[in-house]
Structure formats: C-alpha cells, structure tokens
C-alpha cells in the first residue's frame, strides 16, 4: 500500500486511489465540487482541488492523480490557495447568493468552502453575472436553478448510473451552459417521480422537487 506525506502527515492508502480520495479518507479536506468516487474518469471540471506535489512544476488537480509511494503533497501553499480562491470567487460571481431562502442552507458545499477558504460569499472583486430566467421549470417534477448550479455534472452522472441513460444533460455552451432535461417531459416515461438521486447529490441545491417547495 502506497504511503505518502500530505501536509507533513503520513498516510497510507489503497493502491489505485486518487489523491483527492486519499486525503478525504484521512481527514485532510481539499475543496472539491465535481468529484465522485464512483466516476471511472474524473471530470476535473470544477478546478477546485488543486494541490502541489513535489517534483511537479505547477499545482495540479488532486482528483486526476493516482497516489504513488513516497509522494509529498501540500494542500495549502500560497499558489494553491490562490487558485482555490480564484476558482471559488469565479463560481460565486455567477451564483445567486440568497442562502436564507435556499433549501440547502447550512448544508451547502459552497458555504463549507467559503468557511474553509475564509472567503466571503459576496466577493467584492468580481461583478455578478446572473442568468435569465432564474428558474427552469421545464421538467415535470424538478425545478432547476441555473444561478445556483456550479455545473459539476454529478446529477448527470448519478442519473446515468442508476437508470442507464441520463434524463439530465448539459445544454448550451460556454458561459451559457446549463443542465437541462431537453424537453424530456413525458411523465409516463420518466422514473423521476420516485427517484431523487440528482436532488440528493447536488452540492448546492440547484435541483429541487417541485412538491418539496410547495
């Protein structure tokens, strides 16, 4: 079993584990939003879990690294923190911060990261750019809040895993990217009424059952 040194703490983990998982399993927190242990191929899209590894020139996302024996890792250097904070501020600059009225208040991954990074939820440096409309009610059972979503893709992955094919998918491109059910709103063919895996896995409360809101 590979042994590695993370922030001067020696940890021993199973061969083939990702560095991020290894740290999380050993009580070392690294901010992350899009990582799921069950993904064969980490999407590495949230760009939060940067660490520094001895011998590597630049910070690297820990979800894409498999642990190796004698690896020396730092999760809190200046350059790593800078990337954590910038990525987080970028996400917040498109996030409608309204925690009081959000159903995941106090359970939200963004609140946790803000506390960890000591970054306010309303960053002063960047302008806010919110999407219109604030809510997408296309799906018969789910409401989607694009201005809460961090586009981690966990909902898509988990839906595909459970049902073979995902009801949800990314739609549009670039800055306009959203999660969409692409008009799949034929109630009879959807298993969504009794399944809430996507709602449960969303780290930021961007998906919610319509009836739960009423």
């Amino acid at each position: 079993m590979p042994k590695l040194l993370v922030d001067n703490k020696e940890i021993e983990v199973k061969e083939g584990t990702t560095l991020l998982q290894a740290c999380l399993d050993n009580g070392i927190y690294i901010p992350n939003l899009c990582y799921l242990e069950s993904m064969d191929d980490p999407s590495a899209s949230c760009r939060m879990c940067f660490v520094e590894i001895e011998g590597e020139e630049k910070p690297i996302t820990s979800c894409t690294v498999t642990v190796k024996d004698d690896m020396v890792v730092k999760t809190d250097t200046l350059s790593v923190r800078r990337l954590h904070r910038t990525a987080f501020r970028l996400l917040l600059s498109v996030h409608h911060v309204d925690c009081k009225n959000c159903h995941v208040n106090k359970k939200c991954e963004l609140q946790r990261i803000a506390k960890y990074l000591e970054v306010g939820l309303k960053p002063k440096h960047l302008e806010q750019h919110l999407k219109e409309p604030d809510i997408d009610q296309d799906h018969p059972f789910l409401d989607y809040y694009p201005n809460r979503c961090v586009l981690c893709g966990k909902c898509i992955h988990i839906c595909r895993k459970k049902h073979g094919q995902s009801v949800l998918t990314f739609a549009k491109r670039g800055f306009d990217t959203v999660i969409s059910s692409y008009g799949k709103n034929d109630v009879s063919s959807l298993a969504c009424e009794k399944c809430v895996v996507c709602v449960d896995i969303c780290p930021v409360g961007a998906l919610i059952l319509k009836e739960a809101q009423e």
């Binding site: 999407s43 970028l90 600059s93 750019h129 586009l151 670039g174 990217t177």
Partner: peptide
C-alpha cells in the same frame, strides 16, 4: 475564445467571461 469555451471548467467558462467584460 469566450464564445468558443465549451463551458466545462470553471476558469475558462467564467474566467474568460470576466476578462472580456
């Protein structure tokens, strides 16, 4: 580039948008 960003990762999707602004 902002228009051609695929929208997958945070830095490119939101960062280039701010640069452009």
């Amino acid at each position: 580039t902002q228009k051609e960003s695929c929208g997958k990762c945070t830095f490119c999707r939101i960062g280039t948008h701010h640069l452009l602004r």
